[in-house]
Design a protein around this nucleic acid. Structure first.
Length: 139
DNA sequence: AGCCATGCACCG
DNA sequence: CGGTGCATGGCT
């Protein structure tokens, strides 16, 4: 593996907009997706690993936690992966529901995060601004 | 399988 | 004491 990138479209819950103060997003149990993340020791309860992600500028760094909630095997009901601690990042990036987070990794193991705006709407206080200077000329 | 929701701990 | 995140249960 030299270059790998995965992405996820953000849900309301991922952003903590549903009232549920959720700390992070859910990671689908897809081998391709999980292959991107480090392997966690599933013999332990709720194993986790801190991961560092860089922005495109190669400088700004964010630390997220990749956690496997597996209490199903320890008298619970959970069996899912989560990437927590992202709210600050998402907030800083002004991520909205429907936006896409893209995670990538390069050869030396360095990881990158990036937000891809699904609907590039120019927002300002809820008002949609039209770009350019429109002019209506009545002849 | 994936998203929604909440009780409690922690911290300013 | 309000916001944030963990851990966990619930709902579709």
């Amino acid at each position: 593996m030299k270059f790998y990138a995965i992405s996820k479209t953000l849900s309301a819950n991922d952003l903590g907009e549903t009232g549920g103060h959720q700390a992070g997003i859910l990671v689908p149990k897809d081998s391709k997706i999980l292959g991107y993340f480090p392997t966690l020791d599933s013999s332990v309860k709720n194993p986790r690993q801190e991961l560092s992600f860089y922005e495109e500028d190669d400088v700004t760094k964010w630390n997220f936690f990749f956690i496997y909630y597996n209490n199903k095997f320890f008298n619970g009901t959970r069996n899912e992966y989560r990437l927590t601690w992202m709210t600050k990042y998402l907030r800083a990036k002004n991520a909205k529901v429907g936006d896409i987070v893209e995670f990538s990794i390069i050869e030396d193991g360095r990881r990158y995060v990036k937000i891809i705006r699904e609907n590039p709407v120019d927002l300002e206080d809820g008002v949609i601004k039209l770009s350019g200077t429109w002019k209506v000329i009545n002849l």
